[in-house]
């Protein structure tokens, strides 16, 4: 287990380094002089010169690359060229909003999707099974931000039940929670059906396995067979597919933040791109990448915690 953990950790670090290299190259090769773009055509040559040397843009590329890595590794993501604030503090400022939105969406999708999937698998051909099959396909095809717009129109503008925009930053928990409902729903909607279908499929497969027949042959109750002996097996492929999809979920969150004008990494990146604020783009995207690989690492590890076959060592020793 420990060896597996370390080998996964090494790959994770390599992925982050690769992403850093890409991000650096991207901003280095993007057309247009960043100094001119940022300061505007009216800026005096002295100002441009000071800016360029402050940003280190006059250094050769390998020095800039080295500096970029050294800065990032020492926790310095650079400085926002517009406001002069550190990128790290900008990111920290909005990170909780994105994390809360993403996790509440995952939570909602899992706590409703998994039971629905189990029900559909154990009641094949029932009304709910058919409705689920239809609805999940319909929802998978619709992007989150479209659902977001519809929810916004219906519940905020037409029915006026829920607040429209923002995250409600007054420290008022209920206000924040109410403002979280629609964005969470718009992300979770596509995922509930998706997870339910995943669980249903792998559950049906597992319920046909010979070892499930063994449990039944020993008279274990149908409840125990389903929720203990089958569910754990069915979770393994579900988590694997879900892990691959989490990147997409983070992407969904970015668009939904824009629709609901919620503060978050998505809005931060979006705003920085339109301003060509490269340090902010670099820093914020890097944080998204790190989040993404961390989530995948957690998924991977929980996968191996569930499936003893991919753990290298453990009790019982080698086959005899």
């Amino acid at each position: 287990m420990l060896r597996y953990f370390f080998s996964r950790l090494v790959t994770t670090v390599l992925i982050v380094f690769g992403a850093m290299l890409l991000l650096f190259l991207l901003t280095a090769v993007v057309p247009g002089d960043p100094a001119v773009t940022l300061l505007g055509p009216q800026a005096s040559p002295e100002l441009v010169k000071r800016f360029v040397s402050e940003m280190g843009l006059d250094q050769p590329i390998h020095v800039r690359l080295w500096r970029f890595f050294a800065n990032v590794l020492s926790g310095n993501l650079g400085v926002d060229v517009v406001s002069g604030r550190s990128v790290w503090s900008l990111v920290l400022n909005v990170l909780p909003d994105t994390l809360i939105l993403t996790f509440s969406a995952i939570l909602l999708a899992v706590v409703t999707g998994v039971p629905l999937g189990i029900y559909a698998a154990t009641h094949r051909g029932s009304l709910l099974d058919n409705v689920l099959a239809f609805v999940s396909v319909a929802f998978i095809a619709v992007p989150s931000f479209v659902i977001a717009i519809f929810l916004l129109l219906i519940f905020s503008i037409w029915l006026d039940w829920l607040p429209v925009l923002g995250a409600g930053r007054s420290g008022d928990f209920w206000d924040a929670a109410r403002r979280l409902i629609l964005p969470t729903l718009s992300i979770a909607a596509t995922w509930i059906g998706f997870i339910a279908r995943l669980v249903r499929t792998s559950m049906l497969e597992v319920l046909n396995e010979p070892y499930i027949r063994t449990s039944r042959a020993y008279g274990l109750s149908e409840r125990m067979v389903t929720y203990k002996y089958a569910l754990k097996n069915a979770c393994i492929p579900t988590i694997a597919v879900l892990g691959l999809g989490l990147g997409r979920l983070l992407g969904n969150a970015v668009f939904v933040e824009i629709v609901f004008a919620r503060p978050g990494l998505g809005r931060l990146i979006y705003g920085a791109i339109s301003e060509r604020n490269f340090p902010v783009v670099q820093g914020a995207v890097l944080v998204v990448v790190v989040l993404f690989v961390l989530i995948n690492l957690v998924v991977d590890l929980s996968y191996s915690a569930l499936d003893p076959r991919i753990r290298r060592d453990g009790a019982g020793g080698s086959p005899v």
Binding site: Y211, S215, Y218, G219, K232, P308
Partner: peptide
């Protein structure tokens, strides 16, 4: 079901697949 695992038990042909891999 009340007979299975109390009065009747079974040993299966293929021991490789008859035990649950995650328990």
């Amino acid at each position: 079901q009340s007979y299975r695992g109390r009065r009747i038990a079974k040993i299966f042909q293929d021991p490789m697949t008859a035990l649950n891999p995650v328990f």
